[in-house]
């Protein structure tokens, strides 16, 4: 078995235009996803919007520089994640397909085995 980090990307502007009923529907989707795949889930969370992000880089002189905003400015930002345990990429992808991801999509990344 291996672990995969499943990143949920979405366009935050599109999200901003939705009403509460829509949010409830998506939350419902996540609950159903959790019930269906609970045995494979090793973690997961929703994130505050990317405007709350802070990035820290080391500049040429070796000094830490803190800046406002996510590391990469893209139209779709990470809005949440799951950690999934699966036998292989096909199994992980099959699980990821059940995640509600309006205005964006899902990225499946293998977690490096450090053992």
């Amino acid at each position: 078995m291996a672990e995969y980090l499943v990143l949920i990307y979405s366009n935050e502007e599109s999200w901003a235009g939705t009403d509460e009923a829509f949010s409830t529907k998506i939350m419902d989707g996540h609950n159903k996803f959790g019930e269906k795949h609970g045995a494979s889930l090793r973690g997961g969370n929703a994130l505050e919007p990317s405007m709350t992000a802070t990035s820290v880089r080391t500049d040429a002189s070796g000094k830490s520089v803190t800046t406002d905003g996510p590391f990469a400015e893209t139209k779709e930002a990470i809005g949440g994640y799951y950690v999934v345990e699966a036998a292989d990429l096909d199994a992980a992808t099959a699980i990821a397909k059940d995640i509600p991801a309006p205005f964006g999509g899902i990225e499946v990344r293998p977690i490096r085995d450090m053992s």
């Binding site: 291996a2 036998a87 292989d88 990429l89 096909d90 499946v108």
Partner: peptide, 10 residues
């Protein structure tokens, strides 16, 4: 190897 793309006929 890293993403474990499976070795099988779908």
């Amino acid at each position: 190897v890293l993403a474990r793309i499976p070795y099988r006929v779908p």
